[in-house]
């Protein structure tokens, strides 16, 4: 899901950087600075998650864990994902510095939107909570695939073809990440409901 250096046109790179700046601004404004260590832990999970390979026939894909960050951090997922991507670019040569803005938007924006969409469902509790958590994880990956396809399409590749390829390649990742988000939310609801309560914006989680 990391777009490499030299692939995108300058217009897409500038557009991505501008959107990332807006997201970072919103994220830093809404960030709860008393919970910076939680943000750092989740950012570290994202940083390491992309090293875990999910075999898909002859191809490969990696975990993203952006859904979990979107759900637990909200807009603060932007700075969290940005810093993790920056470190991945510097230490692992994944993606790159010029595409940092685009990659941040591709992974953070769908995560935030999926979380906003699924939070009411999760707040209902019971089976709805499980379904909402699963959907949040899966939709975040699907959204990241669509955003990546859109960035590629705006440069030179056809959107439909790129989107089909990316979505098909990431169906197993969507299932795995949906499962991870579901298990995490279920566990949090039992052992640390206040964390989930805060993540849901004060909504009750039955």
């Amino acid at each position: 899901m990391h777009i490499s250096e030299g692939v995108l046109s300058p217009a897409v790179l500038y557009g991505g950087a501008a959107l990332a700046c807006v997201g970072l601004g919103l994220g830093l404004r809404k960030l709860d600075y008393d919970k910076l260590m939680t943000v750092a832990i989740l950012s570290a999970a994202f940083f390491v998650g992309s090293l875990i390979h999910v075999p898909i026939g002859p191809a490969n894909a990696h975990l993203i864990v952006n859904g979990l960050l979107g759900l637990l951090l909200g807009w603060a997922a932007f700075p969290s994902i940005f810093v993790a991507l920056l470190l991945q670019a510097v230490l692992f040569q994944f993606g790159g510095l010029t595409v940092l803005g685009v990659n941040t938007v591709n992974m953070a924006l769908p995560a935030v939107l999926a979380a906003l969409l699924c939070r009411p469902l999760i707040a209902r509790g019971g089976k709805a909570r499980m379904l909402g958590a699963f959907l949040c994880g899966a939709l975040s990956v699907a959204g990241a695939g669509l955003c990546t396809a859109l960035a590629l399409a705006l440069t030179d590749e056809g959107f439909v073809q790129a989107a089909q390829m990316l979505l098909l390649a990431h169906v197993p990742v969507m299932v795995v990440e949906g499962g991870i988000t579901l298990l995490t939310v279920g566990f949090l609801a039992k052992v640390q409901p206040e964390l989930l309560h805060n993540a849901l914006g004060g909504r009750e989680c039955a």
Binding site: T38, I41, L42, S50, L51, I52, H62, I180, T184, F187
Partner: peptide
């Protein structure tokens, strides 16, 4: 929970591959 998640991911990263 996040700490446990990160520990799991760190352990699983032994099967890492470069993306």
């Amino acid at each position: 929970m996040p700490a446990l998640c990160m520990l799991f991911l760190l352990c699983a990263a032994q099967e890492a591959w470069a993306h």
